[in-house]
Nucleic acid binder design. Structure first.
Lengths: 215, 215
DNA sequence: TTGAAATTCAAACGGCTGTTTGAAGCGAAA
DNA sequence: TTTCGCTTCAAACAGCCGTTTGAATTTCAA
């Protein structure tokens, strides 16, 4: 169909611009937050016209929605740590694996790290867009943490206790990743290379393991 | 001296305006952050003229500096938990006391809670004003945490290990206080009354105690 | 090559920002 | 009562914000 071809070809060019805008927006929103990140800066980084955001995404909010969608997918879909893999390990092994995986952004400051920064912004000032996202299902980092801690807790534990322990575990790596830049400066001066990461994983695994094993 | 009287009386009126502005600014910056909190909203809440901020504080930044100064003093000067008190307790008692004290804002959402929110904003986008503040001395919550964990760690522990453990402990109550509003909503739905606070303190004390005691 | 649809573009819009300005109000000393 | 600082005030300033607009350009089927 000529009509379909038109749509396909047109959308190819569209996808190039859209991808560039989403990539630029991810970096900008990660650095300045949603309110602080301006459309002018995003379009400038993406080498696109200001109006492109409204043309392709209906506005700044629509673009942000796409960024959150990509971030969520990156955490949900990629197989870098799935539930089955955790279950196959011993409780101790699963705990260590969990901590190691979510501390990785400390040394590999990549795309995932930008997504975590966006989540950090959302923890200070939640946007309705993001709230709608997590309302449908808790972020993966929490679901996996619950899976890990449940293997340590007795069957009869109250759901409140499970939630406390799950949050307690989940926020440990989140803290170090989120605060990495601040911790690198005085008075802490923690520089995270591969070795330091291993030592941190060792320390946190030990602390959490003994804490959880006592239940 | 007539000159002194002039100064005194003039500064009395000045102090009223200054105090109202600082109070309003604390609330606004806590809710919207430094960038997001507008001078117009602050002066409106303080029932002062817009220009008053520049007249009394030299600008928005000067007003923010005063807010941070008050926040720092509230944490540093008040005797609601001092180092000597911690040292007088058993290691376990000190740990519990520490967690309880810094989880209190969960149920008493007061001025201290607003200060914590400002610190949360700073953790996402540190301002130079705040960085200069904490560079001169680590916040009290970290100094006390170090004091608590040092009693569990062997003498020969590396300073890195001490720092890891200290941060690990310190961010536990900070997380729950900072995320209180989010945790109150689905999918977590944690409402913190006095009883729930006690249960949380119990859980965290148990988890941390067993973790630290293993060193 | 023509024509119509999709996309880009520069410019402008209204609104909000922090700050500046110069006059007006005020209280106490002379 | 007059005078003189200190403080307040409404208005205006320049600048950035997200969005809209309508024309120019590009794209590609016919």
């Amino acid at each position: 169909m000529s009509n379909l071809d038109q749509v396909r070809v047109a959308s190819r060019s569209t996808e190039v611009t859209r991808a560039a805008l989403i990539k630029a927006a991810t970096a900008v929103f990660a650095e300045y937050g949603y309110d602080g990140g301006s459309v002018r800066l995003i379009t400038q980084k993406a080498m696109a016209n200001q109006a492109a955001v409204n043309y392709h995404f209906g506005g700044k909010d629509g673009l942000y929605r796409e960024v959150l969608l990509a971030a969520t997918r990156a955490f949900e879909e990629n197989a870098f740590l799935d539930a089955e893999e955790l279950d196959a390990l011993s409780p101790e092994g699963a705990l260590r694996r969990y901590l190691h995986q979510f501390l990785l952004p400390l040394v590999k400051r990549d795309r995932v790290c930008r997504y975590l920064r966006i989540f950090a912004w959302e923890s200070v000032k939640p946007s309705e867009t993001f709230s709608a996202f997590i309302a449908q299902s808790p972020p993966r980092i929490f679901r996996l943490a619950e899976r890990v801690v449940r293997r340590f807790l007795p069957q009869e534990s109250s759901s409140e206790t499970v939630t406390f322990a799950m949050l307690w575990l989940a926020q440990q790596p989140m803290f170090f990743v989120r605060e990495a830049e601040r911790l690198a400066k005085p008075p802490f001066s923690l520089k995270f290379d591969d070795d330091a990461l291993e030592r941190l994983v060792d320390t946190l695994t030990g602390l959490s393991l003994r804490g959880l094993a006592g239940f």
